[in-house]
């Protein structure tokens, strides 16, 4: 008999509550635009937040209410964006594709380690121990935290343990920007091809002791830059992307190859001056 009481009590309780919720659901029904569901269905369900909204559903609500245009979604393809635009009778609103760019060129072939790190194989852990074992304090540690967090499989570690971004797959969601303990990634429009691939704040030739492609803050690039395209800030060149940055002159002026030209087809290009120092194998100095 004793088992009957709890079963009955809980049974009745849940039935009453379920009934209340059912009634409330009917009586308190709030009309929602059915197009929100349909638009959400057409979105890629990545919930990555690259559009600036918390997820695909809030983005769908913004699309239906006209507060955003389909072009904001960087995960969907052209056909998908066009379908949504046609469905809602709005323009696609072309946004220039943005991708993650890495401000370091120091792979194993050009940089050295000053100490041997044998802890957990993540950049986050390594960076806590005096900034990691790398010769350059600011450089990429190469354990691939960015590759791990990338949901779109857009980052691969190349043979020199330097991350390479696949610009076709990159959606500019910003996960790698947050993951990198050195803060080397930033999101840039894909037309920003002139790029400073170094974050070393040191000045002088001893930068080259730890990395062949480091910026020594010599200032050659800034000295003859047209219209102040490049200025030196804290021992690093800063490119003003509001000016005409579609020029390859600075990469030729850079003696170490810290300033690069990012090409979709041929990848990272460096100037003639620096080409001779790029090694094919590992740079065997210090610890490895």
């Amino acid at each position: 008999m004793t088992i009957i009481v709890p079963i009955a009590a809980l049974g009745i309780l849940s039935l009453v509550l379920a009934g209340l919720i059912v009634i409330a659901n009917r009586k308190l029904y709030v009309y929602e635009d059915p197009r929100i569901d349909q638009v959400e269905e057409m979105l890629p369900h990545a919930n990555c937040g690259a559009c600036g909204f918390p997820g695909c559903r809030p983005f769908a609500e913004a699309l239906v209410s006209g507060k955003a245009l389909p072009g904001k979604c960087s995960v969907s393809n052209d056909a998908g964006r066009l379908a949504i635009a046609n469905f809602l009778s709005v323009s696609v609103g072309a946004e220039e594709k943005r991708v993650a760019r890495l401000a370091c060129g120091g792979g194993k072939n050009v940089s050295i380690n000053k100490a041997k790190y044998t802890g957990m194989e993540t950049c986050q852990a390594a960076s806590l121990i005096s900034g990691g074992g790398k010769g350059c304090f600011w450089g990429c540690l190469g354990y691939g935290d960015c590759k791990v967090v990338c949901d779109f499989d857009a980052i691969r570690m190349n043979e020199f343990s330097l991350p390479e971004v696949d610009v076709d797959k990159c959606t500019a969601c910003g996960d790698c920007v947050e993951a990198c303990p050195k803060g080397l990634f930033s999101l840039h429009p894909i037309s920003h091809r002139l790029w400073v691939a170094c974050k070393s704040l040191e000045a002088g030739d001893h930068v080259l002791d730890v990395c062949d492609v480091g910026c020594t803050a010599c200032g050659k690039c800034a000295m003859d830059a047209d219209n102040n395209l490049i200025t030196m800030v804290k021992n690093l060149p800063v490119i003003d992307y509001n000016k005409n940055h579609h020029t390859q002159v600075p990469i030729q002026r850079c003696p170490t190859g810290a300033i690069v030209w990012l090409d979709d087809q041929s990848g990272v290009q460096r100037g003639k001056e620096s080409k001779k120092i790029i090694r094919k194998g590992d740079r065997h100095l210090g610890y490895s």
Binding site: S14, I21, A24, L28
Partner: peptide, 15 residues
């Protein structure tokens, strides 16, 4: 059970 369903009901009501 009661807290969970109350919150649910309150949410619908406020909406």
């Amino acid at each position: 059970v009661v807290i969970a369903s109350t919150v649910q009901l309150v949410e619908m009501f406020i909406k």
